[in-house]
Write a protein that binds this DNA or RNA. Structure first.
Lengths: 114, 114
DNA sequence: TTGACATATTCCCATATAGGAATGTAATGT
DNA sequence: ACATTACATTCCTATATGGGAATATGTCAA
């Protein structure tokens, strides 16, 4: 079997770095495609294709305005990723704790027991 | 150009759902490959290959013990994903706020101005 | 040494890319 | 109607995939 499609879910869609950039760029304001092209330094068809992927998994919303199309990030669609990563939060806190404790025991070594 | 390698970063590595399952499974305890195989219902070479991808981006750590290898999730490596998604948190909160306000204005419609 | 066990690696193949180039389509102004 | 602007879509190709099957590697036990 091949790799799952980029359009299969948000995890696959955001694996591409340019798509992450686009999502950040569109997070605060609506933008037309031309603005995204200018900001990303990609050519227009590439941007349109990335937007197509993002649209197909609900990561962006479009609105037509004359001959322009206004895209905006749909932050809600990023929540599942946030929540998945959050399940590991307590573990990396434990790991940091261990690192910290080891560092402190280097600075203030405990006397050998006995 | 083709899609970036699954081994190129954590974003690409976790795009595969079985790898996400493995990471969850290995989050709390060390496990040997055989246990992962049993838990995932994949066959052994597939699991080894997934572990190889996860290892190459630092998402898991291995320790050898006799003929076994003990894998464990390195939660620290998931933090960058968490932090990236976190940049959108305030936006989805705004969006929810707007949805909430619209729902409330349906229940308690404002009188038309003028 | 030989065999059994645990895991990794290699080879195979259908499939999906991302970008580049070219072309299609829809809306506007004149 | 026609040219122009703003996007989307299609075609192309090198490349990486994930699973299955087979095989290699490494470790222990007798």
């Amino acid at each position: 079997m091949a790799r799952a499609a980029t359009t299969s879910d948000a995890f696959n869609a955001v694996a591409e770095p340019r798509r992450r950039e686009i999502l950040v760029f569109l997070a605060s304001d609506e933008r037309q495609v031309g603005e995204i092209v200018a900001a990303m330094g990609l050519d227009q068809p590439s941007v349109s294709k990335h937007l197509g992927v993002l649209r197909s998994v609900g990561l962006v919303r479009v609105r037509r305005n004359g001959r322009h199309r206004l895209y905006r990030t749909n932050a809600e669609a990023i929540r599942p990723l946030h929540e998945w990563t959050e399940t590991f939060e307590r573990f990396w806190q434990h790991q940091l704790q261990r690192v910290k404790e080891r560092a402190e025991s280097q600075m203030f070594p405990k006397p050998p027991s006995q």
